[in-house]
Design a protein around this nucleic acid. Structure first.
Length: 302
DNA sequence: CAAAGTTCCTGCGAGC
DNA sequence: TGCTCGCAGGAACTTT
């Protein structure tokens, strides 16, 4: 479920639900997710009031009033379900998530993969569900945030400081396909497999094109790179908008709704017609760095 | 067989 | 020639 727009949607939902509330109980149902839970996590979070919910790249950062940060990464299949005090939490009633969701099987609130539970002072409960357990949960002191190994090597936020000159500097001399570079979180954060494919298609750039070829000899960005930076920003912004609108309609904080609401131009559309105006190409699927890439060979040039 | 993410290991090429 | 450094590519984690 998690690229930047989906994580941003979750952030917004958690912010509404959690800020100003105090966690009265934390229940862990296993040793950890991708990494073991820190020993002090339950102690640190129990009794702490949530002050803010931030996002950095695809990480959620929850600040508490005792000077700590709760870090949550959703991995591939992580999800939060919020249950308000008026609802009776029951696994049998919340069986599988949206029945129409392609990812419903992976993200359902099903009782078998509910690894963390947070109870709040207003009677609400948040359940973290993650079948594949690629997610991360961690706590650290706020003052230590700059030296967190998970955060310190991250590149720029695409919707903030990032621009074509910055991108050009990071692309210079890079001997790997541009698709691979877009997925590299040191280049720019928040772009995953889906939006990398979408941004390249919007830009008319082949995913296999060498990264360095998007930079001029004088170190300045080419027209194509400038376009790519613009399209990355636009595709992410549009997806955040869709996610935000779905959030208003559902009590659950569910990033899959963000994906569901967005219909992709190329991703997962192998053999389908290219949807670009005036292009009669057919979408192809190739493999790059062990990941699927979708492209239109007709309108995405090398 | 493939899946929305990230880290770590290996191997190769460049440069000293 | 040989060694080290850095980068690029691939495997691994897990469950459905």
């Amino acid at each position: 479920m998690p690229e930047l727009p989906e994580v941003e949607t979750v952030r917004s939902g958690l912010e509404q639900a959690w800020v100003g509330r105090t966690i009265i109980e934390v229940i862990l149902r296993r040793d950890g997710l991708r990494f073991p839970f820190p020993e002090n996590m339950v102690n640190v979070l129990t009794g702490a009031k949530v002050e803010s919910v931030r996002r950095r790249a695809k990480y959620l950062l929850i600040d508490t009033n005792n000077g700590y940060v709760f870090l949550s990464h959703l991995g591939m299949s992580g999800r939060y379900t919020l249950i308000t005090s008026s609802e009776v939490p029951s696994y049998s009633e919340h069986s599988a998530g949206p029945a129409h969701s392609k990812f419903g099987k992976l993200t359902g609130f099903d009782g078998r993969h509910d690894h963390m539970e947070f109870r709040f002072d207003d009677g609400s409960v948040a359940v973290y569900t993650d079948p594949r357990r690629f997610g991360i949960a961690d706590v650290f002191e706020r003052a230590e945030e700059p030296i967190q190994s998970l955060l310190e090597h991250l590149g720029p936020e695409p919707l903030e400081q990032w621009n074509a000159d910055d991108a050009a500097r990071r692309c210079q001399g890079k001997r790997s396909p541009i698709k691979t570079t877009l997925l590299d979180q040191r280049f720019v954060v928040g772009v995953g497999n889906i939006y990398a494919c979408e941004a390249l298609h919007r830009s008319g750039i082949s995913p296999t094109r060498m990264t360095y070829s998007l930079v001029r000899k004088n170190g300045k960005p080419t027209k194509d790179l400038t376009r790519l930076v613009k399209e990355v920003k636009e595709v992410l912004r549009a997806a955040i908008e869709v996610g935000g609108s779905t959030l208003n309609d559902f009590a659950a904080v569910d990033g899959t709704l963000g994906y569901f609401g967005h219909h992709f131009q190329v991703y997962d559309r192998e053999d389908g017609p290219c949807l670009k105006d005036g292009c009669n190409g057919t979408i192809e699927r190739i493999t790059q760095s062990n990941r699927s890439t979708f492209l239109c060979p007709r309108c995405q040039k090398k």
